[in-house]
């Protein structure tokens, strides 16, 4: 059996790794957002560096392709003066080589201080964290940069930072998450963050093929009709629809998806007049979101990216300190 203790918290309840938002106390989430705030100003200075991670080695361990997330982690670590090593490890089933834990052991032997891990399998960062603990190397911190369909906690946190920036208070909001909830690690992290921060109504909107069984048990209201789901919301969080889902048994076509679940100006009118529109990127214009919305006044999609660096700096500096 796994220990019942959440493996990302240390014995005192402090943050040891960042693996998921589920189960994080509200104070911890708020502390991360508070820590991130001053980091947004660093980017505006002439010298964009802080010495908080000087002498530390951060390994970006990407078993799945990513440009954006890897780049933002890299920038965040460099602004904190860390040494950053990027590893893109191809793990297609045809090129089975070293096991995941062998890779981890080798990199740990190179005196890594922090692993930023992306992996196609849900739970892979847990395996790494548990392995480090079992082998007496739990001084090495693990940050989940996206694992399968499970979690993408720094994305969830930067989304919370963005919402707080524009809406100030979480406890009077209605938030809708739209699209492919089933395959989305982003959606799961958003749901846990929003419910923990006290958002009274979190909605998920999508066709039944893209909603997990029993998703309402995560504390959300389910809508299959986008128009009723968007009515009166303060925040619309769009999700990326992966190409491979588009034509097959999950969805008949991109066109039909866009017609019923794409965010257009006329659908957005059902939301509150000051609603913000978010997207984790990269966007599929004309599939889940219309360009008129993506480039329009409600969109806060580019600020999300900027805040993402500050939030990742906050997470890294807090883990390095703990």
């Amino acid at each position: 059996m796994n220990s019942a203790r959440n493996p990302q918290l240390n014995r005192d309840g402090g943050l040891q790794h960042l693996l998921t938002i589920e189960g994080l106390p509200r104070e911890v989430i708020t502390a991360i957002l508070d820590t991130a705030a001053p980091f947004t100003e660093v980017a505006e200075r002439e010298v964009k560096k802080l010495p908080l991670l000087r002498g530390k080695s951060v390994f970006n361990l990407f078993f799945e392709n990513s440009t954006r997330t890897r780049t933002t982690f890299e920038i965040a670590a460099k602004r904190l003066s860390a040494d950053v090593i990027n590893l893109n490890i191809n793990t297609s089933s045809t090129t089975k080589g070293e096991t995941l834990l062998d890779t981890v052991d080798n990199l740990a032997a190179m005196q890594a201080d922090m692993f930023v891990v992306r992996h196609a399998s849900s739970g892979a960062p847990y395996l790494i964290a548990q392995h480090l603990a079992a082998t007496g190397r739990d001084h090495i911190r693990v940050i989940n940069a996206g694992d399968g369909r499970h979690a993408h906690p720094t994305q969830g946190l930067l989304d919370m930072y963005t919402i707080r920036h524009y809406k100030k208070d979480f406890t009077n909001l209605t938030v809708a998450i739209v699209g492919d909830i089933l395959h989305s690690r982003v959606a799961r992290s958003q749901i846990h963050a929003l419910t923990t921060l006290g958002v009274p109504e979190v909605r998920v909107i999508g066709p039944k093929t893209l909603l997990p069984t029993d998703v309402e048990r995560l504390g959300v209201r389910v809508f299959n009709d986008m128009r009723s789901g968007l009515r009166g919301v303060d925040v619309v969080m769009m999700l990326r629809l992966q190409n491979e889902r588009m034509n097959g048994a999950l969805l008949p076509s991109t066109q039909e998806f866009f017609k019923y679940y794409g965010l257009t100006l006329d659908k957005l009118e059902l939301a509150k007049p000051d609603a913000i529109v978010m997207h984790p990127g990269p966007m599929n214009r004309g599939v889940e979101i219309d360009s008129a919305v993506a480039d329009g006044p409600h969109a806060v999609i580019l600020p999300q990216v900027t805040f993402g660096i500050a939030v990742r700096m906050a997470v890294m500096s807090m883990l390095a300190r703990s």
Partner: peptide
């Protein structure tokens, strides 16, 4: 295919 798979992002 139930609550735990939904939470952990596992195929049900």
């Amino acid at each position: 295919d139930g609550e735990v798979a939904a939470r952990l992002g596992l195929t049900g």
